[in-house]
Amino acid sequence: MAMSLSLDAQAAPTTSTASTDTETLEISNQTGFRAFRAGGFHFKRDEYFAHLSWPGGTHIIPIDVFLRAMMRDVAWGFFYGVVNFDAVFGTINHYGEVTMFAGRFNDAYRSAGRDYSERFQSAALMATFKELLSDWTVAGYDPFAAPMETGVPWGVKQGANDAAITRQRVTAHRMVGLLGDTPLRTDTAGFPVNRQFADVPQDQPVVEAEPGFEHEVSAYNLFGYLSRSDVTWNPSVCSVVGDSLFCPTSEEFILPVEHGNDRCEWFLQLSDEITWDVKDKETGKPRARVLARAGDICCMPADIRHQGYSTKRSMLLVWENGAAKIPQMIAEGTAPVTPVQF
């Protein structure tokens, strides 16, 4: 099972010297939101913005952008590699420890020596991120949802929406629908067909199992399953061959982060289309633009960052390799940048 695909951040090694210095700060009399501190980083929000500061710098991110990115960083357990909230702020997953940075992957900050980073034990930073996300997400706003399917994040503190931000990430152990594995999505289970997939057939395959083989002769409608996803840009494991993880997802609007790869990552476009902006992982300079239509398959190299755009809600199969050997190869610089040479 892919370690970073679990909902919770991995535990740091017992010998870890990474920081656990985090703090929940006071409630603002003006806005009602709490402030937070992790090491030298401070976080405050007001009606429209997240205000970040660190020794030697400050930064502002629109609160909708910040919350959508924070939602993915939390749900993905810091994911694979780098999660860029925007061109300045983000996290790097070291799988047990995590670096929080400002300007680390921004050419101007780096060239001027103005970038700043601190390394934390993942569990400590994750706890702070979860608390921040809970406090800063107001009632009626769902940072997992497409913008046209949710309320707005603006304004002073008004309630919360913990039900939306604590959804359990689907991680099938073998395949969706098998006995004891993650179940199918149905109306009665609270997963109606999404408005943008109203035309997707909901028929199920013919399954004729001889007595004794009911649990091995199995199939389900993956496209129907995806049409019932209530979140966007949130890959879920649906079938597993060793460390090969099929992680399909439904996508609408913008991937809320620029994902900086630390390994090769494959995208198979199952329906409709997504445009991907691809930039250099270190500098952010543009390298390519990929237009993926239904049936197209491509790889994101391990030295880029990417962000996708999907006007019509689309189905994307994200294919990951969760092998435990890969983080060590990344640390040693031996992980391949591209999956195949030809």
Partner: peptide, 29 residues
């Protein structure tokens, strides 16, 4: 919702700015 098929698929592609298209291993199933 647009799915592809043997008889009806419209392939996208890699628009290169500063890279080698081979790095993206782009094809259509």
């Amino acid at each position: 919702t647009r799915f592809g098929s043997l008889d009806d698929y419209e392939k996208g592609g890699v628009e290169i700015i500063n890279d080698d298209p081979r790095n993206y291993v782009f094809s259509n199933v």
